[in-house]
Structure formats: structure tokens, C-alpha cells
Simulated assay, not measured.
Amino acid sequence: MKALLLAGGLGTRLRPLTDNIPKPMVPILGQPHLKRLINYLALSGIDEVVVTTGYRAKDIELALGDGSDLGVAIRYVNENTPLGTGGAIKNAEKHFDGTFLIFNADILSEIDVQAMLKHHKQHNAAATIAVKQVNNPSQYGVIEYDADYRIRSFKEKPPPSETSSNWINAGVYAFEPAILREIPAGLTVSVERETFPALLSQNHKLVAYRYEGYWLDIGTTDKYLLAHRDILDGKCRTVAGHSGSYISPTATVSPEATVVEPVYIGDKAIVDDKAVIGPHAVLGCSAYVGYGSMVIDSILLDGVKVGQNLKVINSVAVNNCRVYDNLISDTCCEF
């Protein structure tokens, strides 16, 4: 079984974190998100992955290679210019001759892909869209469907008065390859706003798959922080083995420091005397927290150095930055 991962976005909402890291490669507890997703798919029975790339494409290819270390075969399709989600799918058409899955690569979930594929086949769908129930759907693409799961309409960010549905597009799809013929080649196309409504108007059978597990779009700094809190609290099982606290055996934590669980302290990280780490603190490889400093509800990526007697709260410090002042609800990229 094959999967297509849409990984070509610029990640502008995550800047400055994505100034030097492609959005799908931002680390989740020390490992690139895209690598974690591929590991999860391999365990779910996917044996071949096609990755669409654009921004910093070489970084993605160097990190993932041919997939042999991840238990899958990986192929890459690069976009010289952004083509949108629909254009990126069309651009990878030659790699698919049977039913396949599509994932937006900035989604963190624990969707059962085999159950979704079974649902897709049982309903003889041309395309199946995973849908997730949310309290306030007005910031999302809303999907209305009937009792047989057949999709009847798409509404983009509707006010509450215009829809009775609170099921949104979860960014995971099952496609039959014939659908790809309906997407124009060489153009910028949105699968959400253009392709799906067009398919519906042509009476193609589009089906909703109700997904009720963990789901989060990690495309903003706030959501990136939330993802780590949820993982440490055990709310997301995709990142296996990391609910609760983890302190690397190669990390050095002073006996005079205070660790408030849950935390993640990566390889070769150093926590100095009187420092306070946690709760919900993540320290990447070789991160350093100086004497008397506090890191709470925050992420220090690899190589970050925090000076003495500082507070880092609800913030992200990008790779190798130096924190010289208190960092409260902010992103640090000082070098």
C-alpha cells in the first residue's frame, strides 16, 4: 500500500522556527515530525511513500534518504514552484496505479489507516475524506454528509448560521487513481477548495470517514507547543514511548536542579544548579539551562543555551540560539 505525503509548504505561520527547517521536519521530542509520521505509517502497513517537496527539499531528502532505515521505500516529487495541495497531488500521479492514501504532512494524529481504507472500499468511494469533530468549525473547511457518509457539501470557514455540521476536513484522504484525471496538470490547485467541490458537482462518490481520535494541526507556534504538552500528558499515542517523562542517560541534570514532570530532556543536555525544568519542558540535544533559570511549558531545540537566572515560559527557542533575557510567550532566534 502506498501513501502520498504533502510536504512542500513554506511553514510561514511557524517562522522563525521554519526559517532553516522545512515545516514537516520540525522536531517532535527530538525527531523530525515527518520521520515520525513515516514510522507510524510503516507500522500501519504502508510499504511505499511518495513525498512531495518544495521549500528546502534537499533537507528532507537528506534526512529521510530512500526510506530503508524506516521500513518503507521513499520516492520524491519536487515542485519548482508551489502548486497547492491539488497541484502537488497531480504532480505525483505517475506513482499511483491503485488505491492510495494522502496525508497533509503537518497533521499529528493517530488515525487507523487500515480502518479508513476498509471504510473506503466498503462504500465503493472514489475518494474518502477523514473528518474530525470540533467545537468551533468556523476556522476550518466544514464537510456536510448524510447518514450513509456520502458527502453532500463543502463549506469553507462558515459562520454557525450557515451549517449544522461541526465535522471538518482532517487532512487525510483515500483516493482511487482515476480521480487524478480530474485535476488539471501544471496549475496551482487547492484540493480542498477546488478539486473536492468540482468532483462533487460531477457526481463522483465522495465519502466521509469519521475519525474520533487525537488530531492537531501543528502549523503554528501555539499548536506546536500544545502538541508537546499533549504528548507528554499521554493524549497522543502516535509518538510511542514518550508519554510521561524522559531524561536521556547522556543528559546531565544537577542534583541541585528541580525537575517538575512531565519533561523531555534529550541527549547531552545540561541542567545547571538551582535550575527548574518543567512541567511540560522539552530540552533538545545539547541544550543548556544555566544556574537558577526556569524552563516551563517551553521547547528548547538542539544546542540552545539559556543564561543564568532567566525565565523561559510558554516559548520556543530555535536550534542553537542564545537566550540572554527572559522569554515569555515568544520565539527566540538570537545567535
Rank of each mutant, 00 (worst) to 15 (best):
F100L: 09
P255R: 06
G45L: 15
H33P: 05
R75M: 14
V239I: 15
I270F: 09
V77C: 05
L70A: 07
N319T: 07
K157D: 12
V189F: 09
I129S: 04
E79D: 12
L70H: 02
K58N: 09
E261P: 15
I28E: 07
Y40V: 02
V259S: 01
S138G: 05
G219T: 10
V72C: 07
V239Y: 15
Q114W: 12
E61M: 06
H119V: 01
I277A: 00
L199W: 14
V306F: 09
L199T: 01
R193N: 04
R237M: 11
S286L: 10
V50C: 06
G30I: 05
N91Y: 06
N136S: 13
S190Q: 03
S293F: 01
L206Q: 08
I299L: 12
A170W: 07
M1C: 08
E194H: 02
S315E: 12
Y246E: 13
E194Q: 12
L226Y: 00
H120S: 10
Y211E: 10
A105S: 15
Y214T: 01
A127Y: 08
Y76K: 07
G84M: 06
S68W: 05
L180P: 04
L199C: 03
L187T: 00
D302C: 06
Q133A: 11
L41M: 15
I89Y: 03
F96T: 03
A227R: 01
N124K: 15
G307Q: 14
I21M: 11
L327T: 00
V142L: 11
N91G: 00
E194W: 01
V318H: 01
I21T: 12
Q139W: 15
P82C: 04
N136E: 14
Y76D: 09
W167R: 01
D59R: 02
Q139R: 14
V318M: 07
T18H: 09
T99F: 04
L41Y: 15
L17D: 00
T258D: 09
I247S: 10
D297V: 04
S161E: 15
G87Q: 03
V289E: 02
K235M: 14
V259F: 10
E256L: 14
A57M: 10
A63H: 03
G241V: 14
N39Q: 13
R193S: 08
L300N: 01
A147C: 04
T238S: 14
C285F: 13
D47K: 11
I46N: 11
N39W: 08
A115V: 04
